[in-house]
């Protein structure tokens, strides 16, 4: 199959792009030109082979996760409203009051999550040599691996716009099951961790905040994942960061 103009015409003929005189011209060419007929045969053979390889997927039922992805996110927009409400409350009542209100609400469902995430941050964020198990260079692998172990499709949020570069992540053993920790770093080596595990109970919660010394942990539970974001940042900054991570994760989870 050489690349000549007549070849292109034969391709266009095979692809049903030609009509009238153009089509008649190629038909005439095919009559007298064995090479052109070979090109046509090869093109048609490739087309058939491609269909043979890929057409079976057309008969498969739509997988549940794709069916779910095609539904308007009603449930998520509900929890979004909760988050918005809790943040509005935060602003209206002031940091301390909002914090206590959130803390009060939290007691119930998410007793351990912020503590676990905080401890995991303390343990690993101070590591110089081995902050992560799988480095950012293998991000694709990390994402698949953690998704598989955590048991939920997770997404590694890109926080470049917020000034954080992904260092990588690790697998953790937690009371709720396997959990993942993603670690990020600013240009001046301030570290941030994202903790995620399966939301086994399925109970959703709003975005909340807990402080341990200078470390602030924002956490929430959506339908599938329980997540926490920890760093040494002012509370408002952490809430903003957590909200943007929530938005990035929401598409997947």
């Amino acid at each position: 199959m050489n690349e000549t103009v007549s070849n292109w015409a034969v391709h266009a003929f095979a692809d049903g792009e030609l009509s009238g005189t153009e089509k008649a011209n190629v038909e005439a060419l095919l009559q007298g030109d064995e090479a052109a007929r070979a090109v046509l045969a090869a093109v048609l053979q490739q087309n058939t082979a491609l269909h043979q390889v890929y057409d079976n997927v057309l008969q498969e039922p739509v997988p549940p996760r794709l069916r779910a992805a095609a539904q308007p996110p009603r449930r998520l927009s509900g929890s979004r409203a909760l988050i918005a409400a809790s943040m509005a409350g935060f602003l209206a009542l002031g940091g301390a009051l909002g914090y206590f209100a959130a803390d009060h609400l939290a007691k119930y469902q998410a007793f351990e999550l912020p503590q676990i995430a905080y401890l995991a941050h303390q343990t690993f964020a101070s590591e110089v040599k081995h902050p992560v198990e799988v480095a950012a260079a293998e991000q694709d692998h990390l994402q698949k691996w953690l998704s598989k172990r955590v048991g939920q499709q997770i997404k590694i949020p890109d926080l470049t716009a917020q000034g954080y570069t992904l260092l990588g992540g690790r697998l953790l053993a937690e009371s709720e099951g396997p959990a993942g920790q993603l670690m990020y770093e600013t240009a001046d080596k301030q570290r941030l961790t994202v903790f995620l595990t399966e939301n086994a109970g399925g109970v959703e919660s709003a975005l909340r905040l807990e402080q341990h010394g200078n470390l602030v942990t924002c956490y929430w539970r959506d339908g599938k994942l329980a997540m926490a974001v920890t760093s040494a940042l002012p509370r408002d900054d952490m809430m903003n960061l957590a909200r943007s991570i929530y938005d990035k994760m929401e598409a997947k989870s």
């Binding site: 890929y54 057409d55 997927v57 057309l58 008969q59 739509v62 794709l66 069916r67 095609a70 539904q71």
Partner: peptide, 13 residues
């Protein structure tokens, strides 16, 4: 939603 679900087999291929 119904319409995009109908397109899923082709999108998957």
């Amino acid at each position: 939603s119904t319409r995009i679900i109908a397109e899923v087999p082709h999108l998957r291929r």
